[in-house]
Design a protein around this nucleic acid. Sequence first.
DNA 1: GCAACTTTGTGCATGCGTTCACAAGGGCGT
DNA 2: ACGCCCTTGTGAACGCATGCACAAAGTTGC
Lengths: 263, 263
Amino acid sequence: MSRRNSSDSATQGIPEATIARLPLYLRALYALADRDIPSVSSEELATAAGVNSAKLRKDLSHLGSYGTRGVGYDVDYLIYQVSRELGLTQDWPVIIVGAGNLGRALANYGGFATRGFRVAAMIDSDPLVVGTSIAGHRVYGADEIERVVARYGVMIGAITVPAVAAQAICDRLVAAGVTSILNFAPVVLNVPAGVDVRKVDLSIELQILAFHAQRRSAIKPPQYADAEVRPLDARSRAGADSLADASHQPARDREAAVEAVGT
Amino acid sequence: MSRRNSSDSATQGIPEATIARLPLYLRALYALADRDIPSVSSEELATAAGVNSAKLRKDLSHLGSYGTRGVGYDVDYLIYQVSRELGLTQDWPVIIVGAGNLGRALANYGGFATRGFRVAAMIDSDPLVVGTSIAGHRVYGADEIERVVARYGVMIGAITVPAVAAQAICDRLVAAGVTSILNFAPVVLNVPAGVDVRKVDLSIELQILAFHAQRRSAIKPPQYADAEVRPLDARSRAGADSLADASHQPARDREAAVEAVGT
DNA sequence: GCAACTTTGTGCATGCGTTCACAAGGGCGT
DNA sequence: ACGCCCTTGTGAACGCATGCACAAAGTTGC
């Protein structure tokens, strides 16, 4: 389905796989800059980013020749070039729909506000949440989606609502003018051509892990056998978790520290 | 058990890309089962999962021949086969380290508890959170990681702590016997061979979206130019900040978030 | 100023993943 | 029972990504 129309090829031919790694490099570069390291070799940067050095060099070569042979890359200069390529030299206003735990995690995300993105507004349908502030951002009602998008010129929207509500929210975002959507709800969103959707599904990653774990324990009988692998109070778990997503968990968030949120 | 009709020893040879899509198919299949649809063609299932039908058939063919030509696939049977392949016919106890918003979102995740996974315990270092319950799960202190892992036979761990703390937590999980790690912290984790790490990074997906958005608007000048992007202040109306307020966050958190940014 | 050293940038081969197109196989109507 | 029709399963071609290995290019030391 992903036919590439000619207009795509008209733009610079940076492979998608490379684009997906640029943020990784950027993160590693910022870490180096924080430690006041002025220059870095492809080998070092590759290690810091968790990739192969040949791959790193090839990736960077798609942006241009920004290194110095015999020396390496200037950290600040490369940060600028990569940022520019990713379009992070401007601030992108983002609308977060769904002020549940996931939406809050996103709003609290450190790297969010500081480099390239700004929370334009948060949206939630729960009257108890609307009007409150989360991480310094006011929460608006769902009926204000269109107004917020128009007012701030929002092009990117994050959907962190329960699965059943996701498509409706998506439709409204698109109708309002949002052209890039980050979807956390476990459903396949239907969007018109020209709208870009990326999905993040926590359970999918978990299931992939389970597959490998199963394979590993099938081949090698677990030597954890010594430990009594007996659920201790199996009884506790009971009850009511149901819910399709974490979106509406208002009340008792003791919000302590933790913050992992951000991460 | 399982003589695994495995004349197709291909069990070993299932491509990684296929594994990554199986959870997608599973989700679509469950949706069909909920609607009491007994059978489905590759075309329909592919549409529901958001992929190409040829790809779907090739993927499924790696598990075996579970379809009926001229008819399609039996939904329940295929659910069983895919689940078995992913290792979801057993319950995997998972330890969640970091009870921030992200950890809570994970704990509350519907698909988590219902199909194949069980929260063995949540861990947090904040004394205010330890001892409380989140989504029915007791929160333990960080010093109990080893005990929890051994007692429940945990093999999968999710790390939702700030970036600075992630590697230390990872080391402890691995030392305790965890062999599969789902990392939400924006750092590259260093693990010994034999340990499987998958990462989920919210900001990376966002940056990829930004890249495409930038390209789009570079080609087509945005007509949102008219709207003045002037933030309306989000301070008023403080009213109920009963939850999730940034105001309660200890200084340590903010610091951590900033650090996370750096990396 | 020259030679030796270091590191980038890249041509090329290899392997993996996707897609096409069709033969194989099973159900259904007559 | 037979042949038509439908959908699966897969061989084969294609395209993309990865990694190797090396030439190009710049720096450092003498």
